[in-house]
């Protein structure tokens, strides 16, 4: 029995808890992508840079707060700085809509044109980020490091294996839950939220019903940018802020949004966790896990790892391709894509 418990705790510590945190970050990112797709009907390739940009502004705000001695320990100061990052990023994203996308919306351009325009926006944002904060890593997590550490856990349970919960992981999970609940209340209960869903469902009929398309589009950008900043900051707090890493996150985020069904908020969340757990569980080395469960002479020779960590993108990609081949509309999309 102890062996079983130890195995579960081990898996939780190295795969399930980090996977849940990563999944939350992906889900928030995918929500931003899916909202823009639902309302503006294009895949926003600048979303990764939006996350990075928001995290960067939040880092500057964090540094400012830290220099003034403001702290909300044990929570990271970054949380306090988050609203500033959101406000600035929302302003930038709304400007990008006004100066770039609005024109093509007016012209009713093909979605590919929007996609190419988003590449232009991506370049501008990537350049600004590299120019302002530089290409180096930044660590801005402060406050308590652990909610409980491996040693605490062992002392309490008396198990051989330990389980740690980092403050950033708990913050990620709680923030993600708060965001998702707030978003669904907004979309499901408020007049504005419903008008947004109506516009996503049937643009012409929404306009006919007196729903202001410009307002819906603005709100979609505001929500998308807010979620992007939160996702970016949580990822940065949890790992560390690398300006370039968000470009790489684009693939798992898109995969999450497509697996769930582009345009479906529920799908984006489920997709985020599917991708995250698949990545973590496929690249986890099960050697020690099996050690608790099977007799020594049954043990496999190697690490018992299905795939090297360096190929975690391949996991996201394979899931993406399988989705596109088997069910291109995704899990939660009733409409034909």
């Amino acid at each position: 029995m102890d062996g079983f418990l130890n195995a579960i705790v081990l898996l939780a510590n190295f795969a399930l808890v980090p996977g849940a945190a990563y999944g939350s970050q992906l889900a928030l990112g995918a929500l931003g992508v899916t909202l823009i797709f639902a309302v503006l009907r294009f895949s926003n390739f600048a979303h990764g840079e939006t996350m990075s940009f928001g995290a960067m502004i939040t880092i500057f705000a964090t540094w400012a707060l830290q220099s003034w001695g403001v702290s909300i320990a044990p929570l990271p100061t970054g949380l306090l700085a988050l609203p500033i990052g959101i406000i600035v990023t929302v302003a930038v994203v709304l400007a990008s809509d006004k100066f770039v996308y609005a024109y093509y919306r007016e012209k009713r351009s093909d979605q590919v044109i929007f996609l190419i325009a988003s590449i232009g926006v991506m370049f501008v944002m990537a350049g600004l980020i590299r120019f302002i904060i530089g290409p180096d890593d930044q660590i801005f997590a402060d406050g308590a490091r652990f909610v409980f550490s491996v040693r605490d856990f062992r002392a309490v349970t008396g198990l051989e294996e330990g389980l740690a919960l980092k403050t950033t992981q708990l913050v990620t999970l709680v923030t993600a839950i708060v965001c998702v609940v707030a978003l669904f209340l907004f979309l499901g209960k408020t007049r504005t939220g419903k008008s947004m869903r109506a516009y996503a469902d049937n643009e012409d009929l929404a306009t006919l019903s007196g729903i202001d398309a410009g307002r819906v589009v603005r709100i979609a950008w505001i929500l998308s940018a807010t979620l992007a900043v939160i996702a970016g900051v949580l990822y940065g707090l949890d790992k560390s802020y690398k300006p370039f890493v968000f470009q790489e996150l684009l693939l798992p985020i898109f995969a999450a949004a497509i697996v769930g069904g582009l345009g479906s908020p529920v799908g984006a969340i489920v997709g985020g966790y599917i991708i995250a757990f698949a990545e973590v569980l496929v690249t986890y080395a099960y050697k020690r896990f099996l050690g608790h469960l099977v007799p020594p002479d049954w043990m496999p020779d190697g690490l018992a790892q299905l795939m090297g960590t360096e190929y975690k993108f391949a996991v996201a990609f394979v899931i993406l391709v399988l989705t596109l081949l088997i069910r291109p509309t995704g899990l939660f999309n009733k409409r034909a894509a």
């Binding site: 325009a117 232009g120 501008v124 350049g127 120019f131």
Partner: peptide
């Protein structure tokens, strides 16, 4: 800023793309 000046090339490319596209 001087150290990161080279990064402005990304901004230039983005603006160039957007201006031509428009």
């Amino acid at each position: 800023l001087l150290q990161n000046a080279a990064q402005m090339r990304h901004v230039v490319m983005g603006v160039l793309l957007l201006v031509v596209l428009r």
